[in-house]
């Protein structure tokens, strides 16, 4: 099963992430976002961060989750490449993110992602789950 697709958007960029379970779709959405930021094959799994977020509903939780990761990227310089969503409800999420601190000598950085937005935001259950997000880049 593929992890995600890119949505073409003129100024910005979007993703649809998939998962047999919702937890997996959330994890894949985060993975997709970091593929926009850096070439993840060069990134090692040497640091781990615990992430806990809350939001008013399931869709907003996607935005809160992704923006929390962008905050950690900005402040601590962590490029995440793998995610384990441990607990997930309609309004809260607990997860672990694994990755490495930015090393400009080894890492190939691509576009900056400013934020995950609420525009066209959707969480759907079909054959498995999908999460759609548009980013401001």
């Amino acid at each position: 099963m593929k992890k995600f697709d890119i949505i073409e958007h003129t100024a910005d960029i979007g993703i649809v992430a998939y998962g047999t379970e919702l937890k997996e779709a959330f994890a894949n959405a985060a993975y997709a976002m970091f593929t926009l930021i850096a070439d993840l094959e060069d990134v090692k799994e040497v640091v781990c961060r615990q992430i806990e977020v809350e939001a008013g509903d399931r869709e907003s939780l996607v935005v809160s989750w992704l923006n929390e990761l962008l905050y950690l990227f900005d402040v601590e310089g962590v490029i995440f490449k793998r995610f384990k969503v441990m607990e997930l409800s309609e309004t809260s999420l607990k997860a672990e993110g694994y990755g490495e601190l930015i090393d400009k000598a080894r890492h190939s950085l691509k576009a900056g992602v400013k934020a995950a937005t609420y525009y066209m935001l959707r969480v759907e259950k079909d054959n498995g789950y999908s999460v759609r997000v548009i980013f401001d880049v």
Binding site: H9, T10, A11, T117, Y118, Y119
Partner: peptide, 8 residues
């Protein structure tokens, strides 16, 4: 052009 919320 196409933005999010507002157009750009």
């Amino acid at each position: 052009h196409w933005g999010y919320g507002f157009p750009i």
